[in-house]
Amino acid sequence: MTTLYLFGSAAPPVFEVAGVITSGQDRGWDVCLGLTPTAARWLEAELPALEDLTGHPVRSEYKMPGEPDVWPKADVILFAPATFNSVNEWALGLTSKFVIGVVAEGTGKGIPIVAMPCVNTAYAQHAQFDRSVEALRAAGVRLLYGDGGFVPNRPGERRPEGYPWHRALDAVDALVSPRP
C-alpha cells in the first residue's frame, strides 16, 4: 500500500482534513496525518477520531531520540494547507516544527512532495513568499500555487468553490500510483 503523509497547517481548510483522509484512502493510500502545533490545537477535539480514521497516531511534535517511529515510511507527502509561515519556514530551513522538519528532510531524500499554500493576497505580496515558492519549486517540490493550484483570496474572504483539495489529490496521484 502506498503511504501518504498528509500534513496541514493552521488555515481554515485544515478543518476539512477528515474528508481528505477518506478521499486518500479511497484512492488506495495509507494516510498518516501530521499537523503544525497550532493546527493540532485547532483540531484537538477531533484528534482521537482522526487517529481512528487513519489507524495511526496524529503527530505534531518530534519523537524523542531513540523512540521507534510510529508511522510507515512515506512514499509521498502532501502538505496542504500550507500557510505563509509554513512555506517560508520550509524554504528557509527553519525546522523547529515536526511537519516542517519532515518536508525539509524529505526534499533531500527525494520523497515526492506536493504542497498547496493557503494564503491571502496581503501575505502573497510579501517579497519573501515569492522567493520561498521559487526555492521550493527549485528543490523539486510540486507547489500548486497560481493557475492550476491555489489562487490567493482577499484577506477575510473565502472562495465560494472552496479550497481546491481535488487538485492536490490529483497531483499526488500523478506522482505515485497506489501499491496493493
Rank of each mutant, 00 (worst) to 15 (best):
L47C: 03
A10G: 01
A49C: 05
A11E: 15
Q25M: 14
A49M: 08
Q25E: 12
I21R: 11
L47A: 03
T3K: 03
A49Q: 13
G24Y: 09
V14L: 15
C32M: 10
L35A: 02
G24S: 10
M1W: 02
E46C: 03
L4Y: 03
R27A: 15
A39C: 05
E46G: 02
Y5G: 02
G34A: 14
A18M: 07
T2S: 11
S23L: 10
D52V: 11
S9K: 02
S9V: 00
E46K: 12
V17I: 15
P37D: 09
V31S: 07
V14R: 05
L43E: 07
S23A: 15
L50F: 06
I21D: 13
V20H: 10
L33E: 14
A45L: 09
S9Y: 04
R41A: 13
P12Q: 04
L47H: 03
W42T: 13
A10P: 00
F15Y: 09
Q25W: 11
W42K: 06
L35E: 06
L47D: 03
D26K: 13
F15M: 14
V20Q: 13
T22Y: 07
G19F: 08
S9D: 06
L35T: 00
W42Q: 10
M1I: 01
I21V: 15
Y5E: 04
G8D: 04
A39I: 00
A49R: 11
E44L: 06
P37V: 01
R41S: 11
T22H: 12
V17G: 05
T36L: 10
T22E: 15
A40F: 06
T38D: 08
G34Q: 06
M1G: 05
R27V: 00
A10K: 02
R27K: 15
S9G: 10
S23H: 12
W29I: 00
L50H: 06
A45T: 07
G8W: 07
L50N: 05
G19C: 09
V14H: 05
W42Y: 11
D26Q: 15
T2A: 09
V31N: 10
L4S: 02
P13F: 12
Q25L: 11
F7M: 13
Q25F: 09
G28K: 04
L47S: 04
G8I: 00
A11N: 13
A11V: 00
P37M: 08
G19H: 07
A10W: 03
T36P: 02
L6Q: 05
P37F: 08
A49V: 01
Y5V: 00
P12I: 01
F15G: 11
